[in-house]
């Protein structure tokens, strides 16, 4: 069964260019603005969308995404509302893959079976759950694959060749390479090291490899994308959300356009990568 994720990466390959994966936090800074932003991402150039599921204790995230999650929770975001948001998005766009990214507890509390059923019905294509390593595959990974939702695993600089097969075993859709040892939005990755790491992973799997953590500018995105199938930008986008808020922390008329403007610049830089190489 070909999924939206498979179809999108196949299309990118046919176009001969890497993809741009954009991360925003669902419900940040409020449900209405967040949905408007989500709906605007594909036209701005997002090839794949990662939608952050807010959690009070995001242990792998830096200050930017922590703050985005807290803004969303304060505005009343829940997992059920996030799924409803995906469903509304699917009314507008039935092609751009949506991957939910977050932590296990909200899903565990929602109930794994009920969650997978509702996520599938809403049009969710994949899951990235930071605190579910292969050792806990029985919790959500295997049920998700059985339900037809890709479980996208993180591989990191500490995942050595001995461990890589374990990490890749039940990974579907694509592999997310975490470019640094650290939290989201922290140090800037070294493009050459990343290129080597991606090549190493590709030696073990036919799946596409997306690279994220610490990628902030169009220039960095282009440099990383040159050595990968896609590049992920997240913290930089939620920081733009934050900068556009009024003094009460509410969205302004500038919130959605400011984020899409950065997405457009990122997309332009990423899309230029192999075209230039081919010329």
């Amino acid at each position: 069964m070909s999924t939206r994720i498979d179809a999108r990466f196949a299309a990118l390959k046919a176009e001969g260019r890497p993809g741009l994966v954009t991360f925003i936090t669902a419900g940040d800074p409020d449900g209405t603005t967040s949905l408007a932003l989500l709906n605007a991402l594909p036209a701005a150039g997002a090839d794949v969308i990662e939608l952050g599921v807010p959690f009070t204790d995001p242990m792998a995230d830096g200050p930017a995404i922590q703050a985005a999650g807290l803004r969303a929770l304060k505005a009343g975001q829940t997992l059920a509302k996030t799924l409803a948001m995906v469903k509304l998005f699917r009314g507008e766009d039935n092609e751009t893959p949506i991957v939910l990214m977050g932590y296990y507890n909200p899903i565990y509390v929602y109930g794994v079976d009920r969650f997978l059923e509702d996520a599938k019905a809403a049009g969710v294509d994949g899951l990235i759950i930071v605190d579910l390593p292969p050792e806990e595959d029985k919790e959500l990974c295997l049920p998700a694959l059985a339900a037809g939702i890709d479980f996208i695993r993180l591989a990191t600089p500490t995942t050595d060749d001995a461990r890589l097969p374990t990490v890749l075993k039940h990974t579907a859709g694509f592999v997310y390479y975490v470019s640094i040892t650290g939290i989201t939005g922290a140090a800037t990755p070294d493009a050459d090291l990343v290129r080597g790491a991606v090549a190493r992973i590709k030696g073990h799997t036919p799946l596409p490899v997306a690279v994220g953590f610490g990628v902030k500018t169009p220039e960095q995105a282009a440099a990383i994308a040159a050595g990968a199938d896609a590049v992920v930008v997240g913290s930089a986008l939620v920081e733009v959300v934050r900068h556009t808020l009024d003094e009460k922390g509410h969205a302004t008329a500038n919130t959605v356009p400011a984020v899409t403007a950065l997405v457009e610049r990122l997309a332009e830089a990423v899309r230029a990568v192999r075209r230039q190489a081919a010329e």
Partner: peptide
């Protein structure tokens, strides 16, 4: 061996920490 006490316990950490 998976660190479980009944349904409790386990190893719910990011992949970066798993090898450690």
């Amino acid at each position: 061996e998976g660190g479980h006490f009944g349904i409790h316990g386990g190893r719910f950490v990011a992949e970066t920490l798993m090898p450690l």
